[in-house]
Write a protein that binds this DNA or RNA. Structure first.
Lengths: 195, 195
DNA sequence: GTCTATATGGCGATAGAC
DNA sequence: GTCTATCGCCATATAGAC
């Protein structure tokens, strides 16, 4: 198929997002320029605007995509009937998912304040939806007497904060495998909410 | 005492740091300009350089001061003999200290990547020192059979991540008092490391 | 779809008058 | 100690040629 010289519509778009993800995660949204992204992609700065209306939209697209992936991945898992097993599954899922995409996780936690209010509201709503899935597990378990937590809302946030913390220090070459990490964290979470 | 017109050496320095703290926490280091800081302080941009050699030093001073305050405050507390009481004290201290200065906490976690490598190393060392204080508690408790944690290093990071998480959602006008929060988190931490 | 060129404005930091 | 003025540079985004 004949192609205009230098034209790569199917390649350049994803490349731009991949480069932006990497650069935003490393240096921060505000510290990265469109020229820097263009240089890394291998085009001139003006060409970026064929793919994104502006820099803000580039950030929003990355964060929205990450949250959609997170919710889709969780909702498409087999959901154990047993409530303890369901909590264990959540812990394992959260750790594995977050360790697989550290850059997207980093951006989604650090760059919230660089979103416009409208975009922030969208991401915030998705994040709350994810938290709600864990809170439902804790509430059900408490109702049936398996879990004992003074406040399911706080317990939800506490567990998620604890689990997400792994992304700040985990290195693939490290002492523990992901499976071992999942087990260590599961024991701590299990005990922290146990009756 | 006679004073040169417009000269305020004892006031301007602290004012600059207070304004920078506020603006860095709200918008991020990279997104805040020296002109913005100067405008908020009420001086011209050039005058800032009587107090700081550059923007980087302003950030480092804020972060270093925060870490020094944290370690001083912790080390100047009465330290309970009982190991469980010592862990409970750590939990209460960490929550109270962090909730009292949300902006400094925010900067210290979010702006690490905007430090020069030399400055980063200094902050990192202080942070490790703080973590070490908790790890010592967990190790002693495990040795005496009071705590059961598979890995004191991971347990340390997990507990700190969980506790620091309160700063991302706590609002002074909220449903729970700081004392109630301390109690809720203490119950979760206590159980998570219990034998 | 990508290029070059440019409009428009802000940046960190410094010099020298007062 | 603060001011005004400025250096040299980079920013986002757009226009129009190819």
């Amino acid at each position: 198929m004949a192609r205009t010289q230098g034209s790569h519509s199917e390649i350049t778009g994803p490349r731009i997002r991949a480069v932006a993800l990497e650069l935003f995660a490393t240096h921060g949204f505000a510290a990265v320029s469109m020229r820097q992204i263009a240089r890394e992609v291998g085009v001139q700065a003006g060409a970026l605007y064929n793919y994104t209306p502006d820099k803000q939209d580039l950030l929003f697209t990355l964060m929205k995509g990450h949250m959609d992936d997170l919710l889709d991945a969780y909702d498409n898992r087999a959901r154990p009937d047993d409530i303890v097993a369901r909590l264990k599954d959540f812990v394992a899922f959260h750790i594995a998912f977050h360790l697989e995409r550290p850059q997207a996780v980093f951006i989604s936690y650090m760059e919230l304040r660089n979103l416009t209010p409208e975009n922030f509201a969208v991401i915030e709503e998705l994040r709350r939806g994810y938290e709600h899935r864990l809170e439902t597990i804790l509430s059900e378990g408490r109702a049936s007497g398996v879990f004992d937590v003074p406040d399911t809302k706080i317990a939800t946030l506490a567990v998620i904060a604890m689990l997400t913390g792994v992304t700040t220090w985990y290195r693939p070459k490290g002492r523990l495998s992901v499976a071992e990490l999942q087990e260590v964290y599961w024991q701590m979470v299990r005990k922290s909410v146990s009756a």
